[in-house]
């Protein structure tokens, strides 16, 4: 079984279940690191991880997660001034997208 979705340019994009499974392990670790970075207000690390995730997740078919990461990443220049609750909300959205797409 393969997971076929569309990438940003609209082209058909197919990855094997095996490679998706491998990527999920990487993604798990990335999300965990993001949580730790948010909890410790490590804005630089947050920006780095979100930058990676927004670019990579669509390549593996995680489009909703990609959008959530992009939304979160767009605040990167104001992480220090944005309301912490807003940051939490953005993080929850990322986690929610991840869980909904990863369980498919």
């Amino acid at each position: 079984m393969t997971d076929t979705t569309k990438n940003q340019s609209g082209a058909e994009f197919t990855v094997s279940p095996q490679i998706r499974q491998k990527y999920l392990k990487i993604l798990d670790a990335e999300i965990e690191t993001l949580k730790v970075a948010v909890l410790s207000d490590d804005f630089k690390k947050m920006a780095n991880i979100l930058h990676r995730l927004k670019g990579n997740t669509p390549m593996y078919g995680f489009h909703k997660l990609g959008q959530s990461c992009l939304e979160f990443y767009s605040k990167k220049d104001h992480f220090d001034t944005v309301d912490p609750n807003e940051i939490q909300k953005l993080l929850f959205k990322v986690i929610e997208s991840y869980e909904s797409e990863a369980c498919l």
Binding site: T2, T14, V15, S16, Q18, I19, K22, K25, I26, D28, A29, E30, T33
Partner: peptide, 26 residues
């Protein structure tokens, strides 16, 4: 050419690769 259907060798290789990656991403 699609990613689907990689060779046995490459699967084995990727398997090794992923197990290590999860332990230390960088």
């Amino acid at each position: 050419i699609e990613v689907v259907g990689s060779s046995k060798l490459s699967s084995k290789l990727s398997s090794k690769l992923s197990s290590k990656l999860t332990s230390n991403l960088s």
